[in-house]
């Protein structure tokens, strides 16, 4: 028991050291500063995927996270551009806005299961894109551009985060922001899943009727999980808008929604850290296959199919089987 605990602590410390110390050190010594952007994207996408994973955990196939990422991006961009808000304030607001929207959307659609829910969420991503095109406030296809970089964040006169525009290396700053949020997000997810709440979510996934017969308010719990999921989507979208300093209706599309879902599948639906690993592998895998030119998509899809056949429980199930054998 304590050995197990020590291993866990060691793993967390090692992970933090890699993410916050080793990676920046390696990048600055190798001069590959473009990797910051790549890894920042991976961190942000894994936050959105973590949200999708949580909806899987209550037994719903969610192909609609793109909608919330888009929504979060627009909420942040509009508040910064039209209302002069600080980016740092828009970040939680974007998340909460998405969570609130997802409660309204989720109440009717979370009654659906299986492929029906999946289809509706898929449509949701498309609806979000069309809305962004049509609404006056989102500025149509031209999108919102020239969003200023995040300003300084100070509390009681104490500057906690400097103005990104004054930094020589705003890429590093965004990287640190993204991975910090990723760490927080997965810490929250880990705690959720390993507390009684995780068991309740599992009970929904395995048998909703039985769950309600033992007194679980299943409609409410589903909505809560979906709201947390969408919160993550919104936050991730808001940072994306800040990094690219722009947001368009096509910033998050059905492809992104599908990818968020695939990240979860690949990493493993039974493992909290599945979406993180899945996002990393998929993102880099896709880039590596760039060399293969026109065959990129073909090889990529083929590999995905094979992986799902060979490892239906995701990449992290490999670690589990070796541990059991050892």
């Amino acid at each position: 028991m304590t050995v197990n605990r020590n291993i866990k602590i060691a793993a967390v410390v090692a992970f933090l050291a890699i993410v916050f110390v080793a990676v920046p050190a390696a990048i600055s010594s190798s001069g590959r500063f473009d990797l910051y952007y790549t890894l920042t994207s991976v961190a942000l996408l894994s936050i959105a995927s973590a949200g999708v994973w949580l909806t899987f955990y209550i037994g719903r196939i969610n192909i609609g996270q793109g909608a919330y990422a888009l929504m979060g991006g627009y909420v942040s961009a509009i508040l910064v551009m039209n209302h002069g808000w600080s980016f740092w304030l828009t970040l939680p607001v974007a998340g909460l806005f998405c969570a609130a929207a997802s409660v309204l959307i989720g109440l009717p659609i979370l009654r659906l299961r299986g492929v029906y829910f999946a289809m509706v969420t898929l449509v949701l991503t498309e609806v979000a894109r069309l809305l962004a095109l049509a609404l006056p406030i989102t500025n149509g296809a031209k999108g919102i551009v020239s969003i200023p970089l995040p300003g300084a964040l100070s509390i009681f006169g104490l500057t906690i985060i400097p103005d990104f525009a004054t930094l020589q290396n705003s890429r590093l700053a965004f990287y640190l922001l993204a991975v910090t949020l990723m760490v927080v997000c997965f810490a929250v997810m880990y705690r959720l899943v390993n507390s009684r709440i995780g068991k309740l979510c599992q009970s929904l996934q395995q048998n909703e009727e039985l769950a309600s017969s033992i007194g679980v308010n299943i409609a409410w719990l589903r909505v809560i999980a979906y709201a947390v999921s969408s919160f993550f989507g919104g936050v991730s979208g808001a940072i994306f808008a800040a990094i690219s300093q722009s947001i368009y209706p096509s910033s998050f599309t059905v492809t992104d929604s599908v990818n968020f879902m695939l990240n979860c599948f690949l990493g493993g639906l039974g493992y909290v850290f599945g979406p993180m690993l899945g996002t990393l592998v998929l993102y880099f895998g896709w880039d590596l296959l760039f060399q293969t030119g026109q065959f990129q998509l073909l090889i990529y899809s083929g590999l995905m199919i094979v992986l799902m056949l060979v490892l239906p429980n995701g990449l992290l199930s490999l670690a589990e089987t070796t541990r059991k054998k050892g």
């Binding site: 068991k199 599992q202 009970s203 395995q206 048998n207 009727e209 039985l210 017969s213 033992i214 007194g215």
Partner: peptide, 14 residues
């Protein structure tokens, strides 16, 4: 007021 189910109904993966 709590019912059990005619079909065997449990959380099968727990």
């Amino acid at each position: 007021v709590v019912r059990t189910f005619q079909e065997t109904t449990i959380f099968k993966n727990m």
